[in-house]
């Protein structure tokens, strides 16, 4: 058995947006950007952490911004990632009872799940906007980087909104298409990992 990590890579080039026309092009582009942000975020985080060690031992100089930069990156990764995960049906769920239900009920449940999740994400997106703008108006700075705090959390509303969008589209897709869709591009039972979906 090959190691599980390898064959489960998502092929971004092969990603087909669930949306028609121009919207689909925009959506595919957003998907591409999310993927790049994820990869670059992780690489930068490793680089930043290593640089801090090197600085401390070779230059007797700690990188004071290192911790803040990692905080910025983890926020970026998390919020680029939740939308990307929604797009590819990768969010963690407990599907034991769901899977045991008959197909028609499953489809109805999927519509409800996707719609409710979308609503929750939009709600959080809205309050994340409030939170970010409150931060901006208070003018709090990151102590080491000396940049406004809101710069590094602005991904939160964006991530919630894009995630909500993916779930909303999933609900619609389940309503107008036959089959059961986990996300706009992932069919239930579609096996891109050689293992069960989660």
């Amino acid at each position: 058995m090959p190691s599980p990590a390898i064959d489960d890579d998502i092929d971004d080039a092969g990603y087909v947006s669930g949306l028609p026309g121009v919207l689909g092009v925009v959506d595919a582009a957003v998907a591409r950007i999310e993927a790049v942000l994820l990869a670059v975020g992780v690489l930068l985080m490793a680089l930043n952490t290593i640089a801090n060690v090197v600085g401390r031992y070779l230059l007797s100089q700690s990188l004071f911004f290192s911790e803040e930069l990692n905080q910025a990156l983890i926020v970026l990764i998390t919020f680029a990632g939740i939308s990307y995960a929604a797009r590819h049906g990768r969010h963690i769920r407990m599907s034991a009872f769901f899977d045991a239900a008959p197909p028609r009920l499953r489809k109805a449940m999927m519509v409800v799940i996707a719609a409710v999740t979308a609503a929750a994400m939009f709600l959080l997106a809205w309050y994340a906007v409030q939170y970010v703008s409150a931060q901006a108006s208070r003018g709090r700075l990151l102590p080491a980087l000396q940049i406004p705090v809101w710069w590094i959390i602005v991904w939160a509303p964006l991530g919630f909104f894009l995630t909500g969008l993916q779930y909303a589209l999933t609900a619609i897709k389940n309503m107008i298409h036959k089959d059961i869709w986990l996300s706009t591009s992932t069919l239930e039972g579609y096996d891109d990992t050689g293992e069960e979906e989660v």
């Binding site: 401390r56 007797s60 100089q61 700690s62 004071f64 290192s66 911790e67 080491a144």
Partner: peptide
């Protein structure tokens, strides 16, 4: 830094 130490941030 002025005291001569290497200030090190740590949570």
């Amino acid at each position: 830094r002025a005291f001569g130490a290497t200030p090190t941030p740590l949570p």
